[in-house]
Design a protein around this nucleic acid. Sequence first.
DNA 1: ATGAAAGCGCTAACAC
DNA 2: GTGTTAGCGCTTTCAT
Lengths: 335, 335
Amino acid sequence: MKKQVTIKDIAQQLGLSVSTVSRALKDHPDISVKTRAAVKQLANILGYKPNRIALNLKNSKTNTIGLIIPMIEHNFFSSVVNGIEEVAYNNDYYVMMFQSNESYMREVLNTQTLATNRVDGVLASISKETKDLSHFKQLTEYEIPLVFFDRVVEDLHADTIVSDDFEGAYAAVTHLIERGCKKIALFTSPRHLNISQKRHEGYKKALTDHGIDYDPDLVYACDTFEDAIKISKSILKKIDKPDGIFAVNDATALGIIKIAKKIGVKIPEELKIVGYENAKSSQMCEPELTTIDQFGFEIGRRAMTLLLERINADNYNYKPKNITITPKLIIRETT
Amino acid sequence: MKKQVTIKDIAQQLGLSVSTVSRALKDHPDISVKTRAAVKQLANILGYKPNRIALNLKNSKTNTIGLIIPMIEHNFFSSVVNGIEEVAYNNDYYVMMFQSNESYMREVLNTQTLATNRVDGVLASISKETKDLSHFKQLTEYEIPLVFFDRVVEDLHADTIVSDDFEGAYAAVTHLIERGCKKIALFTSPRHLNISQKRHEGYKKALTDHGIDYDPDLVYACDTFEDAIKISKSILKKIDKPDGIFAVNDATALGIIKIAKKIGVKIPEELKIVGYENAKSSQMCEPELTTIDQFGFEIGRRAMTLLLERINADNYNYKPKNITITPKLIIRETT
DNA sequence: ATGAAAGCGCTAACAC
DNA sequence: GTGTTAGCGCTTTCAT
């Protein structure tokens, strides 16, 4: 990069001191109107741009937040990021983005990087692999405000914001039952993720509340389009196949739909399906997918808003909030 | 944030000078093994984390690149971002992410922010609104390396990397012709975007090369799922409706499919469709969409790799490259 | 083998 | 109304 123009250059050319220039640039009332004008004009001519790095160092504040997400290439996360970026933009905050790629190792490295980069706060959604939390704990020891979204953990000094996974799952499964399903399968993610636990519980509760026994054999470890393609066939060909499936995300549901259509299982007559996410693709497919809208954009907006509050609070002894966004059942053609 | 532990704290507690501590921390051979060990141990106990901001200021280098994209919530862009982040991660670079949200104003502000934040380089894809380029020009005046991807401009000192839009469109339309289409419509974006121009030209050339006259009446301004839903009906109900459509992106193509199915136009018998992007949803839908894979991840990877080269070059007088990634026709069920 | 001091660019307390 | 100076945290040249 070219040698940058500094306040000092302006001061020298104008025969002023740096402090005068600094003040003139920010319209300090002490400085004469004439000087102010002269300074600004020259700043303009020289193409002066304040150096935020210097400011950051001086103020121990970077106006930057760190963001760790599992994978940006996942519609739900990108809508959350959209919400985060929106609020950041409106508040003159910058977003340093990292992907964990579902790797624990990488997530640990990311938190280190954020700490050395002195971000003012961190927004994170943990990877599927993550069990140990000391890397996040460390962040709290530095008193860096931390807000988890979607895939959260609860035993840290950190706020959390999630879609109410229990309610969402409960609503989805209840809806399937009301539509007449008797044998409802669950396609879900690894057990230790908070969100899958909650959805699992919502599934269970909806069943028992409606007098249907919970059957662990109807729970399948499957949470991607590809996996759904792989395992659905054998499941849907069984003589005692399920008449309803609740999938932990839309991609998985779409995989099931694809296979069902291929082997001639009629949707929604023979098989009803509810997804989770309300991804764009859930309306683009055929039949359109009944699903749970998680309001990703809203989650992002609120997570960032809350983080800013924490950053601007005068001390770190706040009581972490656990916010829950009530998701919404979107009834379409698969039920 | 808590008062951070600095090199000075370590120096004081150990009765050493800051320079010794600094050197010890980076295993400088001058420092005795004993001192090194003592320093590192204490650093560990105190939870010392080097302050990159100080380094950045000292070195006039931030190891950060700025990224400006139209909208993250667009599958193609998020896959590009994924590629960018991958390379950044592997090279210890950080990504500061901004969305223009297709707003020229916002894009201008974003470039300003990047300049004051002294990013080492910028990766950008311009907004649909952008016509004037002085904000990017300014970046080049500061000699901040600049690489455009996907939606590029050519008259700046900046590298560009695009999917070969002309070839992609040519391949798509040729494929439609080979499948027997005689009357092929184009659904595309605003004319001034480089990519739509190129695809438009590819469309035209494929037609004329195969002895079909180019008819401007078959070109529709439509490049979103929603718009396609709106305008497709009237087009597909016409007595002399097209028998093939080339859509500028997959979402648009999916909108067309949806309407075609609704009003009973058979795909691919009566109407053949080719999209552009190879989004996840293009395989999830029914019938599966024939489309052009743009290799978004690869574009991101190469853009970031090239940017790093520029950043690490010893001078700014490089000759900008214009890289072209050859896209690939993915034949599925809509043709 | 270790220390002193300058400097990266900027701000603000303290002069005058 | 303007200037001087210290300091944010770190590296590095030059001493010793």
